[in-house]
């Protein structure tokens, strides 16, 4: 698996990624996505990542990108009608 942009988060990310791949191939692709087996691991990784994103000023960039993506989707939807 790939590294995290914050080296201190890479161990937590690796644990989460391994859990996710297992859930994705053994459960999600087989039609069972009712449980979220990896949530505790994701929360731990996310906690670490959020700090790094804030420090690098990437949290605001991401918020804006999210808003732009939503707007684009909306425009596309409107274009269909």
């Amino acid at each position: 698996m790939s590294a995290s942009l914050a080296p201190e988060c890479s161990p937590a990310k690796e644990k989460y990624d391994n859990c996710f791949i297992k859930w994705y191939s053994d459960k999600f692709l087989k039609g069972d996505s009712t449980t979220d087996d990896c949530k505790p691991l994701f929360d731990e990784y996310r906690k670490c990542l959020q700090i790094a994103l804030k420090e690098k000023g990437l949290d605001k960039m991401l918020d804006e990108a999210r808003r732009n993506a939503e707007e684009r989707e909306l425009r596309k939807e409107q274009g269909k009608h």
């Binding site: 790939s2 590294a3 995290s4 942009l5 990624d17 996710f20 990542l49």
Partner: peptide
């Protein structure tokens, strides 16, 4: 050229089952 990949959020849409 790709040095890191981070998952920021993830969810399964309940109505469609889309990840």
């Amino acid at each position: 050229h790709v040095i890191a990949v981070d998952t920021v959020s993830r969810r399964v849409e309940p109505s469609t089952g889309v990840l």
